[in-house]
Simulated scan of single mutants.
Amino acid sequence: MRTHLRLLALSALFMSSLAQAADLIPIEVHRDANCGCCKKWISHLEANGFKVEDHIEADMSQFKQLHGVPPRLASCHTALINGKFVEGHVPAEQILALNKRDDLLGIAAPGMPMGSPGMEMDGMSDAYQVIGLSKIGTDVVVAQYPAH
Rank of each mutant, 00 (worst) to 15 (best):
Met1Lys: 08
His4Met: 11
Leu5Asn: 11
Arg6Ile: 14
Leu7Ala: 14
Leu7Asp: 14
Leu8Met: 07
Leu8His: 03
Leu8Cys: 06
Ala9Thr: 13
Ala9Val: 14
Ala9Trp: 09
Leu10Ile: 06
Leu10Gly: 08
Leu10Arg: 09
Ser11Lys: 05
Ala12Trp: 03
Leu13Phe: 12
Met15Leu: 15
Ser16Pro: 01
Ala19Trp: 11
Gln20Arg: 13
Leu24Pro: 03
Pro26Ser: 08
Glu28Gly: 05
His30Leu: 05
His30Gly: 01
Asn34Gly: 04
Cys35Arg: 09
Gly36Asn: 13
Lys40Pro: 02
Trp41Phe: 10
Trp41Ala: 07
Ile42Pro: 00
His44Pro: 03
Leu45Arg: 07
Leu45Trp: 01
Glu46Val: 09
Glu46Pro: 03
Ala47Thr: 11
Asn48Ala: 08
Asn48Asp: 10
Gly49Pro: 08
Phe50Pro: 00
Val52Asp: 04
Asp54Gln: 12
Ile56Val: 15
Glu57Leu: 08
Ala58Gly: 09
Asp59His: 12
Met60Tyr: 04
Met60Ile: 14
Gln62Ser: 15
Gln62Lys: 12
Phe63Val: 11
Phe63Arg: 12
Lys64Tyr: 00
Lys64Glu: 01
Gln65Asp: 15
His67Gln: 11
Pro70Leu: 10
Pro70Lys: 07
Arg72Lys: 14
Arg72Cys: 02
Leu73Gln: 03
Ser75Lys: 00
His77Tyr: 06
Thr78Asn: 08
Thr78Gly: 03
Leu80Tyr: 04
Ile81Asp: 00
Ile81Trp: 00
Asn82Phe: 05
Asn82Tyr: 04
Phe85Lys: 05
Glu87Asp: 07
His89Leu: 12
Val90Thr: 01
Val90Trp: 00
Pro91Ala: 06
Ala92Leu: 08
Glu93Pro: 01
Glu93Ser: 13
Glu93Leu: 08
Gln94Gly: 09
Asn99Ile: 00
Arg101Val: 07
Asp102Ser: 13
Asp103Val: 07
Ala109His: 08
Gly111Pro: 02
Met112Trp: 07
Met112Lys: 11
Pro113Cys: 14
Met114Asn: 05
Met114Glu: 12
Ser116Cys: 07
Gly118Phe: 02
Gly118Ser: 08
Met119Leu: 13
Met119Glu: 04
Met119Tyr: 03
Glu120Lys: 08
Met121Phe: 15
Met121Val: 14
Asp122Pro: 00
Asp122Phe: 02
Met124Ala: 06
Met124Pro: 00
Met124Gly: 01
Ser125Asp: 13
Asp126Trp: 01
Asp126Gln: 12
Asp126Tyr: 03
Ala127Val: 07
Tyr128Ala: 11
Tyr128Gly: 06
Tyr128Trp: 15
Leu133Ser: 01
Leu133Phe: 05
Ser134Leu: 06
Ser134Asn: 10
Gly137Glu: 13
Thr138Gly: 11
Asp139Glu: 15
Val141Cys: 05
Val141Ser: 06
Val141Thr: 14
Ala143Arg: 03
Ala143Met: 06
Gln144Trp: 04
Pro146Leu: 13
His148Lys: 15
His148Met: 12
